[in-house]
Amino acid sequence: MIIALIKKEINLEIRRKAVISGLLIYLGCTVFISYMAFGFRVVDATSWSALFWITLLFTTVNTVAKSFIGEKKGEDIYFYSIVRPEEVIIAKVCYNFFLCSLLSLAGFVLFTVFLSNPIADLFLFLITILLTSLAFASSLTLLSGIAAKANNSNILMAVLSFPIIISILLLSIKITKNCIDGLARSVSYDELIILASINCLVAAISYLLFPYIWRS
């Protein structure tokens, strides 16, 4: 059932190509703006990681925000009658994780092209990107569900998600700094473990709480 739901999400996405291409262009524009704002030159490592994570934050919030906003009223009731809410949230989180990591990797490529690539430890950095995408996906999916039920979704989504995302973002920025400096991997283990455990915590909470949002 979960796989069927993920397939449905992918199908919907392929049918509405405008949304995903819109997000990619959004990402591209943001990277290009940062490139131009820094005067067409290579930025230093600290600004690079700050720009990178801020760009990703805005892109992923926009990506995940549409996961419930796009749905029509009738669809909701139909799904309510055929699947369990737990299956819906797992499918949505999996799909959003896939989408977020895709966009993050695209963002990384764009940053490499326009703003250089200061990362010394690529493997660790990719793991960080994946873990952060998972954390973003699992926390933002629940919040977008809340925002979709309340009316003025877009602003509310940002207000609700930013303070909660910050703790994840701080850890990612810290690991990124270690990756840029090329420190030994053992230095970052603590942060990685905490990031992974925040992931588990947030995913578990989303799983437990989602049925209550969906009920209305």
Binding site: L160, I164, I213
Partner: peptide, 26 residues
């Protein structure tokens, strides 16, 4: 802010309870 932006009392209570739990854990 979330509480302020929902009209329906029952929905307000439920959504804000969900956010409250999420916020405390975060």
């Amino acid at each position: 802010v979330l509480r302020g932006s929902i009209e329906n009392e029952e929905q307000k209570a439920r959504l804000s309870a969900v956010y409250n739990i999420f916020a405390f854990v975060a």
